[in-house]
Design a binder for these strands. Structure first.
Lengths: 130, 130
DNA sequence: TGTTGATCTTCCAGTAACTGGAAGGATTAG
DNA sequence: CTAATCCTTCCAGTTACTGGAAGATCAACA
């Protein structure tokens, strides 16, 4: 299977697939014409990457997950720990964004938003109230 | 004022301050010895940048905000629009992270997390349930 | 005066995770 | 046969810094 088909099946851009190969996440075979040739296991791996990246795992974390996945002796505890850590990070990020949203919402509300030159948002940013 | 002091006053690393200068966000004077010399307006600008970045504005958005800030004829509506757009983006990001959190929470809960080799997290990622 | 040690300078390179584009070979459809 | 599409490699750019090397300058102390 060529890279175009692999791209469609994995929902990953061809560029990204080549990039993943470059950084050693997979090693597809080569056809006689030099084209990459993806087998079912490769597609499986690519889909795995697509899902894990979509869940917010970094590429390095994906590499770990893939090695755990490939290791039939690994404990599910290892994977669970990785996922739990990621969950903490996500919660932290959500909290940060909420606080940010609160501040900005306040600013947008108090800004009259017309043609007058005074603006509470810029005042806040410039430290007028600090 | 040297870059070290400017760094302490603005809560920005010296490296970052030099970087901001490099990309044209400010132009501090130079002392005779070649050292950068920051005046109060520069510090003000740096603090502005520090706050705006912390609120999630990109460097380019900060550049816009700074030019609006410097323009006494600008309408507060311009700033409000920028902030409102940013608010939308933040809300979108929060929604994404929540959905992500939901999926991962489910996976972590269903994973027994012991030494057994089967693991619902990897199953899900590998597409076993898809 | 000498000499540390901290601070400053510039420049080069690297990070994450791709993305875009150029130049050129292979394949497929009509 | 030709045109369009797909494939290859390689180089460069993105965002917003961060790290480090090599060398100048400064402040403080004996």
């Amino acid at each position: 299977m060529n890279i175009g088909a692999a791209s469609r099946r994995s929902a990953l851009p061809a560029k990204t697939i080549r990039y993943y190969e470059e950084i050693g996440l997979l090693r597809p075979a080569r056809a006689e014409n030099g084209y990459r040739d993806y087998c079912d296991a490769d597609i499986h791996r690519l889909k795995f990457l697509q899902r894990a990246r979509g869940l917010g795992f970094s590429v390095e974390e994906c590499r770990q997950l893939l090695s755990l996945y490939g290791d039939s002796h690994r404990a599910s505890a290892d994977v669970k720990a990785l996922a739990a850590t990621k969950l903490d990070q996500i919660e932290h990020k959500i909290a940060e964004l909420r606080s940010l949203k609160k501040t900005l919402t306040h600013l947008v509300k108090t800004c009259h938003g017309d043609a007058r030159p005074d603006c509470p948002i810029l005042d806040e940013l410039s430290g007028a109230s600090a």
